[in-house]
Design a protein around this nucleic acid. Sequence first.
RNA 1: GCCGGGGUGGGGUAAUGGACAUCCUUGGGGACUGUGGAUCCCCGGACCCGGGUUCGAUUCCCGGUCCCGGCCCCA
Length: 431
Amino acid sequence: MVDADNKIKIEKIKGFRDHYPEDMEIRNSIFTEITETAEDFGFKRIDFPSLEYLDLYKLKSGSELVSQTFSFVDKGGREVTLIPEATPSTVRLLTARKDLPKPVKWYSFPKVWRYEEPQEGRFREHYQFNADLFGIDSAKVDAELIGLATNILDNLGLSGIYEININDRNLLEYILNDLNINDVNNAFLIIDKFRKISRESFIEMFRKLDANDENINKIIDLLSEKLDMDSLSKKLKKLLNNYKNIDDRIKRIQETFEYISYYTKSSINFDFSVVRGLSYYTGIVFEAFDVAGKLRAILGGGRYNNLASLLSGDDIPAIGFAMGDAVIELLLKRQNLWERNIRKASYYVCVLNDVNSEYPITIAQKIRKTNKIASIDFTGRKLPAQLKAAMDYDYSIIIGNDEIKNNSVSIKNMKDGDQKILSFDDFIKSL
RNA sequence: GCCGGGGUGGGGUAAUGGACAUCCUUGGGGACUGUGGAUCCCCGGACCCGGGUUCGAUUCCCGGUCCCGGCCCCA
C-alpha cells in the first residue's frame, strides 16, 4: 500500500502475530519450561520443514483439515502447504530412518498454520508443542505420554485448573457395533458434536444411521457424564448386550488411569464425547480442558497406530499429543502466571564521555565469561541518561577515568541504589 | 467462508462537516564536564486505505483492509 506521501505502508497479515522483546522474554521462559519437561522425560527434539507436500495431509488427516491449509502450487508445479500440524512430518522423519532403535521419544516445537478466521485463542500462525512416542503400544506408555502432558501443565503452574478427559475410539467402536451402528466414522462425527448441538438434532442425525431409539438413548446416556473407572464398567455392563468382548479394553483403560495417577494429582475422567477431529486416531484419545470452562482444549492427542504403515508400510505403534501456545498464553495470563522466570544476573556498563579505553569491554567480557549478561553503553550520553537505560538491569557498572586510573570498578545495585567501589580483582572474584 | 463491534502520533486518549486536531506517556535534546534513575524547559511524531456526497470529509455513506469477538471447523 502507498499513501499520499508516497511512503510504503505494510500492515501485518491477518491472523499473524508480532512478538517484541518484552513478550519474547516471557515466551522464551515459558517455552523453555515446556521443552525442559520433555527433556526430563527423555524426549529428544527434532525439527522439520515448514513446507510439505499437501499429499501428506490428504492421506489421513481429514478433508476438513486439508481445506484449511495455507497451500499453493510452487514454481515447479508442486502442490505444497505450510504445515497445518506436526504429526505427519514427525512420522515422515521416523519412517525415513529404518535404523532407529525403538522406542523413539521425540518432541518438536514448530510453527503451524491454518487458514481460518482468527478468534480468541486462535490465530492463523501459532507455535505448537508436540510429543510423540513410537514403538510400544501399552497402558504404561499411554500413561507416560499423558503424564508428560500433565507434568508440563503442572510445571507451568496450572495444577488444579485443568482436567484430562479421556476416551478410547476402539472401545467406542465396539460399543457402537454392539448397538448395531456400523457406520462408525459418521457416528464419531456426530458424537463429536454432542455438546454443541441440540438433543433433537443429535437424535435425528443418529436415526439417519439406522439406529433405533432405544440404542440412541443408550448412547446419549453414555455421553452425558464424565465417568470414573468404576462407573464406566458398571454402566457398560448394564447397557451392552455383549460386555465380555470389551473386557480387555476396559482393563487396558483401567491400567492406564492407574498409571497416570503416579504422574499427577490432576483430575482424570473418562468422557465418551471426546473424539477429536483427526481421522488417524486408533485407540485412546484425550484432551486437557480448562476446568472453568469456556476455553478451547488446552492440548489434545491420542494413539495412531496406522499412520506409519500408511506412509511407509512399517507397522509402528504411536501415541502423541499437541499443544498450541495461544490457549496456554490465555490461561497463564488469566492466572497471572505469564511472567518470565528468574534469569541470569545482568550488568549495564555505563561509560563516561571522556573515557577512551578498552577497559569497559574487558569488564563486560569477564562478566560474560561467567555466563551473566553484560551490555555496554556506547552512546556517549550523560550518566543520568545511561543510568536510566540501566533500570532493566540488576547492576550498573560506572567506568570513568578515575576507575581506569585506579584499576577499579564502581558497581551500583539498581534495586536498592547501593553503590560501592571494588578493585578490578575483587570485582572479578565477586562474579 | 459468514456475522457483529472497532481503527486519531510508538502506547493510551479528547474533540470536531471548516482555520495550527487535545491531553498523558514514550522518544530526542537542553538546563547539568561523574550518580538529578529527580525536576523544569524545548522538540519530533497521528485522523487505516480507496471511492462517493459536499464549496469543504478525520467526521456522513459505500467498498476494502487490519484488530477484537462470535459462527463454521478445530490441528
